[in-house]
Design a protein around this nucleic acid. Sequence first.
RNA 1: GCCCGGGUGGUGAAAUCGGAAAACACGCAACACUCAAAAUGUUGUGAGCGCAAGCUCUUGAGGGUUCGAGUCCCUCCCCGGGCACCA
Length: 850
Amino acid sequence: MVRYNPAEIEAKWAKKWEKEKAWEVDLEKAQKPYYNLMMFPYPSAEGLHVGNVYAFTGADIHGRFRRMQGFDVFEPMGFDSFGIHSENFALKKGTHPKEQTAKNITNFTQQLKTLGALFDWSRAVTTSEPEYYKWTQWLFLQLYKAGLAYKAKAPVDWCPSCKTVLADEQVIHGKCERCDTQIVQKELEQWFFAITKYAERLLKNLETIDWSERTKIAQRNWIGRSEGALLKFEIRSTKSEQYIEVFTTRPDTLFGATYMVLAPEHELVGKLKDSIENWGEVEKYINGAKQKNELERTELEKEKTGVELKGIKAVNPANKQEIPVYAADYVFASYGTGAVMAVPAHDERDFEFAKKYNLPIMQVICGDYPEQTCPALKEAYTGPGNLVGSGKFDGMDSEEAKAKIVEFAKGKLTTTYHLRDWLISRQRYWGPPIPIIYCRRCWEIRNSKFEIRNFKEGIDYIFINGKEHIIVPVPEKDLPVELLYVENFRPEGSGKSPLANVPEFVNTTCPQCGGAAQRETDVSDTFLDSSWYYLRYPSVGFRNSKFEIRNSKQIQNTKSKTVELPWNTEITGKWLPVDMYIGGQEHAVLHLLYARFITMALYDMGFIAFEEPFQKFRAHGLITKDGAKMSKSKGNVVSPDEFVAKYGADAVRCYLMFTGPFSEGGDWSDKGIVGVSRFFNRVWDFLQHEGKNLQSGEGLEQLRHKTIKKVTEDLEQLHYNTVVAGLMEYFNAFSGNSTVSLQDAETLLLLLAPLAPHLTEELWEQLGKEGSCHNKQWPSYDVDKIQEETFRLVFQVNGKPRDVVEVETGISEEGAKKAALGSEKVQKWLAGKEPKRIVVVPGKLVNIVV
RNA sequence: GCCCGGGUGGUGAAAUCGGAAAACACGCAACACUCAAAAUGUUGUGAGCGCAAGCUCUUGAGGGUUCGAGUCCCUCCCCGGGCACCA
């Protein structure tokens, strides 16, 4: 057995490929552009782990396969190096994120280069570079100018450990996505992106893209569309006339609404203060609710609490009955209208609440109409049925009644979504400063000219220390707003970024009036950095295009006529949208949703010609260690380095792919890799001994064509584990087989090339072949050559296999029957009984039923 | 609670247009090579019974449909993930 030395040959080819820029693709002249994208990593100090290698290898195999199929594959790589993850690490280590990041990137790059992937290093992108984040800031400005960014005071999620606010998507079960700390609610003024304006499109467009179904489902759930109606309830109070508007998905149950509930934060509660007889009690309840964090409030097992607003009554618009009004924290201010009509008979929560506070429960839907036996309900009936106790609607089907009752009660049909606006400001240091300036002088100038009448708070001006300040976007020509090097970047928890302590950053000159002004000191969310990186990659090295603004409706608040874009329009038109995107399922409602939103917004501004960034997306599975998710805290992170050194990158690649279906992931075992390594050594050994003697010829023609078919189809589906198995099976037929031909060996190398690029390249050279095997055409198969002349026909008696014979492929049904009845074993099992029925499955079996 | 996956040998897993379950590997055992070990090679390896030919059982549990079910239907259990007092 001649073993191969992976370290030696991998180094040899890595060097050669780097020198020849083997990955290079001419982005301008490419005939069949194929943008093969994978989620770029954040360069952690620990370096690459096998989970990264798994993801990248799966994506790279796809790219290499497409390339051999004749596509011009562009496979970029970069670093998501800005943001809280990098900063937290630097804090822990006592280093500065700037230096730490540079170090990490160097290390990562070196590791990535050993993997043998087609990464185009000439177009790498690093999100923390001013050259990049200048455009992240630009993106913020475009959204601002399009009316999609606004500053608002709202109850937001605050992580006490990270000392910053977080987006809704970054709160997992009430805990911080990054550090697992329990979040708290704070009322703070923050920047938001109006992603909710795109809720319907984000949902609808899912139909048009080829994505892993589970990723689409996760997005659908997150967007959380629900159809219902808005209904108005008049309030009878002693002092004022008001309405409570509610959102409901069950307007058909309106007659059963026996009380109402307002969220404790609902503005009406305060407005009705003078009419509320028990204000002291109510105020106490509200203050109590405010102090609970979201997790406490949403605790399912928790008993419901609430307080009646005494002196206030609402009128059910259906039956004009006066019903009581409560404030209770099981209703959220942030969803629907922040108020609900309570129908205890047909809603579990309302039922529980009504029981506790002894409120009437009135059944208005009957599941088994007309036999309505309506004893006191033991639990809420939430299913469909026919209406009862609903006046002229009695007997009507509940589905049908929905629209009818909405009309009757003068409400309106509507749709709401769970999706919330994207909170993008962070009170941290390591991110792109939000390119906004606040100017008091501008306000004074405009006020004196009466120009401020139509200004909107949050979009045109904000209050700082109780005084209005105009929001002035930093002019594009002044970008980037550079992140100053600050020694003390530690977040303080004051609700402000550490940049707020740096006067030379904060104090600036207003670009509009030239007066003294202050900068926004928050930075933007990391997910903004990664929401557009795929747009940048292909344009690296090309001149940015200018965009002429014709339609001022799309971009407001701008005086300039042209905008410089962060990309080249021609190149972008040619390469985008992305043909294949491969990444982790964990970003289903984070990165993937944000990226879609940003792309849609840019499309609406006219900057790009497509709405969806990723035509095809496939989620890969997770690599675990001993069944557990790898994490620094558990200390079970596996680095590929040791295994690459010992077995070679090819073996690591191939083993990872072999461990299970790519979409499912698998468990890393230190031992499993030897199987693949042995396989490679046997291939190596075989070609050392037989390589020179191989002759052209049919060889293992049938198996060869079968294997090409299987491997091609499985690669197409990303079923890499069976690709490896298929190749092993094919090669197993080589051993001791003197008929193996040159074509057999060549085909093996070509089919294996995407998985084990170094080994195959070396053996290709040793076979004396011209050029690189990676530039060769992908092998094709001939269906005729796969046809078997004979096959194994199974005979069953009563469904149990009893015999098998080799018969000619074209055998007739009659012939098959005859053969079956002619079998001794079959006869033995028939034991003289007359067959009742004979089932013939052509090409498979004959089943004799007695 | 709802929505997705998934449950197959000692292990990772194949096989889902219903047609010999366990391909391909790992591990294990025996043998060969070796002074020995490692490496490598050969053979065997789902369970049970049997000297053997062979037979029976077997894809989380239980029912069903079918000539025939890992695959389809129903009920339930377990594991992983997502959502969750969303009106």
